[in-house]
Each structure stands twice: as C-alpha cells, then as structure tokens.
Simulated assay, not measured.
Amino acid sequence: MYVAVKGGEKAIANAHALLAQRGRGDAGSERIGYAQVRDQMGVLVARVMAEGSLYDPDLAAKALLQSQGDVLEAVTLMRSYRTTLPRFGVTEALDTAGLASERRVSATFKDIPGGQQLGATFDYTHRLLADELTTPELPTDPLTPPSGDDAMPRVTDLLGVDALIEPDRPDDWTDPDPADLTREPTVFPMSRAERLQALSRGDEGFLLALGYSTQRGYGNNHPFAGEVRVGEVEVEFEAPELGMAIPIGRIELTECQMVNQFVGSADQAPQFTRGYGLVFGRSERKAMSMSLVDRALRAEEFSERRVSPAQDEEFVIAHADNVQAAGFVEHLKLPHYVDFQGELVLIRQLHREFEERVAAARAEGDARAERRTKKEDSHA
C-alpha cells in the first residue's frame, strides 16, 4: 500500500474521510436510507445479490450505499461478508417448475397454457427521460395468473411431448452433491452444474457481450426465448433432527429457458436444444445472457466445432468473475516501484544498444558510400 508515501497512514485516513464526505453529498440534503434503495432500486439490488452470491436485499442495499453506487465494490462487500457466515448445510433443489410467476413470457408460442403474463417490465416503455417519477394506480381488477401446478406448464415440456427438444437430463443422470466454487478450486473441464453456478454469479455485462456475440455468428446459436419467468419460489431445508424438509422462506428468481436449433449429427436426431439461466431477483437480461452462453459452452456435447470465445469454457469462466477481474485491473494502482525500476533499467539498456547499432550501421553506410565515390572518381 501507500503507507510509505508522504503522509503515510494519516494520508490514507484522510482519503477515507474525503470518500465518506463525497458519498454524503450536500449536508443539507436528506440522507438516503437502505430501505429506499432496497424498495426503489430492486433491479440493481438483484444484480448485487446475484453477483455477490448472497440473497439478502437489505445487505445488498446497504452495500450499494456504502459503495456509493459502485456495483463491483458492492459485490465485493457482499462476497467478503458472505465468507463470515456459518454454513449449516445445503437446501433442497428449488422446484422452479411450480414457480408462481409474476411475469412469464414466451417468444415461441403466442397462445400457451396459462397465457402470457407481462408483469413489471421496461419492455413496453417509451424510454423517455421523465422530469419527475410518478406512480400510476393499478386497475381495481388486475389480471392474476392462474393457480395450480399445471396452470403454467413449461414451454420446453410441451416440446418434449413429441421429442422435439432434448431431454432436460440424460437417462443415466444422477443427482451429485453440489459443488461450491467459493470453497473449491476451479478445475477444467467443469460439469455443466459448475458452469451454471459460475455463470449465475458472473458479471452481467460480460455475459451480455458474450451472449450477443453468439447471436452475431460467433457461436453456433440460433436461439428462441422459450420462456422467461420472474417470481418467488419456496426454499426448503432438510433439518437432520427432523428428518424431513421444511420451508425456510421464499426468494425471488428469474429463470430463462432458451430454445436453440440443432440440425442433428450422425448419432443424434435433429431437435431443439436447451440453454438455461437462473438468477436471483429480477434479472431478465442476465438470465437470458446466461442461457445463451450456457448453450454455447455445450458445443462438445453436440460435436460442434469450438471456434468462438463464448464456446471456450476456460476463457468464459476465468473472465466472468467481475471481482477477480476488478481486483487484477485495479491492483495496477498499487505501488510497483521496484518492478518499474527494473523495467526502466532494462529499457535504458536496450535503448542504448539500439542507438549504438543505429550509429554503427550509419557509420558503415557512410564508409561504403565514401568507397563507392572514390571508386567512381578513379574510373573517371
């Protein structure tokens, strides 16, 4: 750190004080409370929870306030706090098939069982900047989604009836213990479950760019949004002392089932294939990007050539983590005096050697020119 710089620890303490002052802003304005951030910036809070690998809207809102809106700094705070929490066990797999959807749209079928639920979305707004935000009143008889386990069957299940899409799991599939990328080292190649875990906590912007690249031809994707759902799902935990799973709460999720074209191979029939995304909170763009990249990373399963960045598992996973990326980039601000001095000495030496070679070449050229002139004079 910069402790050795003039002022030392006092300068760093002053830097902290200045940061807090800048974050507070005008002392005459009302300080923002974390509850306001939590309730009025739900999309941003969801991103911090997803990339911070910790579902807690209150903590995410506090992290955003502490970081002055810097998403990566807030994610870092969340992950740091997460490491201090005790681990009691692993919850049961979430049953998203019965996800009670506030929002459910499909780009593959106009009329689907349960209907299209538009929900809360920016998709149909005019994207015009408003001088003041207003809250319109909802109709007295708002449309409510149908209830029941079969009220909103998955679009992929409808395609699966006629074997038009690959099964959601192989016939010989077993349910292995879930890996934890926060506690275990990353080893390539990864299982699809491990990849999905890494993508779910990956940087939204990075995944968006990769997902976009697959649509532009840098990957073998021809995608359709089979279904995007946003809603709450119950979390269950099997307590050893009870011997049964009990509900411990509900969390909001966004799930995307992407349907992709596949022309088949020598041993596989033509069918649609799947890309999958599941993210904390309202995070449609992230879930869709994740599902596009998930399908691109399955190239080897379908004997497809891996020719694009989105199809390279090590490239994608190693660079999707924004905390690692930010740390490696921002560490360049830290003192590198010794390293730079070494580079400076080397560059000076190479520069001198270059000038000596140039001078020697110039002298040799002058000598050749002089000999040529003398030779021409003697002939004359």
Rank of each mutant, 00 (worst) to 15 (best):
R201S: 03
F328A: 15
E227Q: 07
V45I: 10
D294L: 04
A4K: 14
G25H: 06
Q116R: 03
S265T: 12
F328E: 15
D70G: 06
P57Y: 02
F88Q: 08
E194D: 03
D377Y: 08
S29N: 12
T135G: 04
P142Y: 07
A299V: 04
S265A: 11
R82A: 09
P223E: 03
S106F: 02
A15W: 08
G25N: 07
R79H: 12
A93H: 04
R298C: 09
L292T: 02
R298V: 01
E376K: 14
R362N: 06
Q311K: 03
V279G: 03
G23K: 14
C256P: 01
R285Q: 15
F280R: 05
D175E: 05
M244H: 06
G42A: 10
E370F: 09
I165H: 01
F188P: 00
V279E: 04
V105A: 07
Y124D: 14
D312Y: 02
R31S: 12
V307I: 09
A367F: 15
V323D: 09
L199I: 01
E313N: 02
I32S: 08
K62Y: 06
E300H: 06
R362D: 04
A4H: 13
M49H: 04
F206C: 00
A198K: 01
G243M: 08
R362C: 00
A269L: 15
V259W: 07
N220V: 06
A17G: 07
V338M: 13
E343M: 15
N260R: 05
F262N: 13
R306A: 06
P178H: 00
L332K: 13
A380C: 11
T121I: 13
F237N: 00
L59I: 11
V230R: 07
K110E: 11
E370A: 15
E204H: 04
G7K: 12
G219M: 08
K6E: 09
D56R: 10
G219E: 03
E73R: 15
Q324W: 13
P86D: 05
F88M: 12
M49K: 04
S147I: 11
E137S: 11
